[in-house]
Nucleic acid binder design. Sequence first.
DNA 1: TTGACAATAGACCGATCTGTCTGTATTGTC
DNA 2: GACAATACAGACAGATCGGTCTATTGTCAA
Lengths: 192, 192
Amino acid sequence: MPKKGRRRAKSSDIGVRDRLLDAADRLFYREGVRAVGIDRVLAEADAAKASLYQHFGCKDQLVASYLERKTVDARAQIEAYLADTPPSQRALKFFDWVVEWAESKDFRGCPLQHTVTELTDAAHPARAIAYGQREWFTDRFLEWTMAAGVKDAKAVARALVVLFDGAVAGAEMDGPQRAKDARWMAKKLLAG
Amino acid sequence: MPKKGRRRAKSSDIGVRDRLLDAADRLFYREGVRAVGIDRVLAEADAAKASLYQHFGCKDQLVASYLERKTVDARAQIEAYLADTPPSQRALKFFDWVVEWAESKDFRGCPLQHTVTELTDAAHPARAIAYGQREWFTDRFLEWTMAAGVKDAKAVARALVVLFDGAVAGAEMDGPQRAKDARWMAKKLLAG
DNA sequence: TTGACAATAGACCGATCTGTCTGTATTGTC
DNA sequence: GACAATACAGACAGATCGGTCTATTGTCAA
């Protein structure tokens, strides 16, 4: 038997929790977590207030959960994107992914950067999620540069992190060309 | 004779307008413009509400004025920092300035990035200020790379913008090492 | 001394925010 | 049919928000 009872008529058949996270994702990413109130999320999710507080306890936790799901999805997406690329080529190929992301219609910068910018309280639960994802990125970059066999792999990996951050921050302000600029430079760096 | 009458006992002798901007600078930069309310600024500036609305009209305009003063100050500071450096060396020297900035006690990222992240309304007056300062940066980078005599100067200039954005965004999340990583890479790029 | 002016203090307004609470409808299981 | 679980609808509370307004104080110039 499935988990428990329940059933709903409206809004297709995903649970409230997922509907809330979907709505939070759309609104928080597009407009910022501080600019969007609980009521907006509820309306967008077509959910009741009690459901939100039942599942998440408070808004901060909803934000953290939204960010966590976003990071988990991003990892999976990146890994799938790179799956067919030989390890030695992945560092550069990753920047193709960044370019595609920056060119996508709804691109509005990096959720991790937004989190650190908007939620200045160091104890905010979303910050821990953000830092965890940062670690994943730095680990991957090191892995990819090692596989590429470049010399000074650690320094190159750190430089690629800077290029990645600059690509998304720059693309948020100036448009997707910044991501291409980053790719151009990454190629140069990995070649020599 | 000076401007007009007035006089105050407390808080030294700068005008209310400047006190308000100073307070706004401290609070907005440290905690974010959406996280800090008018009342916090007034308390920090030891000023009256009417003074704020007399000088700035609304909060959005205070934010824009705060950002404008910050960008004007930054330009002056950077130009002074580079004044003794021959033009051909300025591109790299600029990243020394970035490292010092990222290592400074109160560093909390780039106000321009914060503005674009926090104020998602494209019509917000602070956005125009931010875009103006972005142009100044891109113009300077092109000027410096041309003076450095590197080939492909335009592409290099764009890459340096990415490195700059990555330096400050990365330093905000991970610490000042990111700025050093950016400098390391800028040196490499400008050498070859 | 008087009047203009700049600034202060703070009450007040309506809107919005997060969060709580009550009550009701629907569903699956016994 | 009874019951528990889940979700919905929405009133409500308390705080805070940006912004307006009145009243008062202190300073300069005439």
